[in-house]
Amino acid sequence: MNLKPETLQKIDEVITHYPVKRSAALPLLHLVQEDQGHVSPAAIEWIAGKLELQPINVYELVTFYPMFRQQPAGRRHIKVCRTLSCALAGSHQVCAELERQFDCHTGETSADGAVTIEFVECLASCGSGPVVMIDEELHEQVDVAKARTLAAQLKQPAAGRQP
């Protein structure tokens, strides 16, 4: 495990937030995933050791909570909202357009590793749907035309993962 010093510092700080170490499992998984891009078997062992748990106690979280991934994602992570209000505003068409643009199915990463596309459940922005989250940025009222513009921006050479 080669975690950045800042990550290690944050990990030690966050553990102090709880009277019981195990509570820090989700925060540690987030920090490790942000640092490494995904949660590897080694990371699971490391977190378990840090919190005095068995690896299975951490592994069962990774397999339950949708936001944790065991494989690296693309450089940019696109999440399109699938749920009713966004669907009524056309999110299925938006998702299909993004799949076409990147030649990549939902739930997968494009062959060049540029993007991962996911079709996710309600992102709590139903009044301005369809909504699309790209990394941490929320885009509202994304119709097919706007999806194409977003895709074009993502395809520019400088569009690496934002810090």
Binding site: H17, Y65, M67
Partner: peptide, 8 residues
């Protein structure tokens, strides 16, 4: 303290 969930 702020505690983040993970998509469930």
């Amino acid at each position: 303290y702020v505690h983040r969930g993970a998509g469930a």
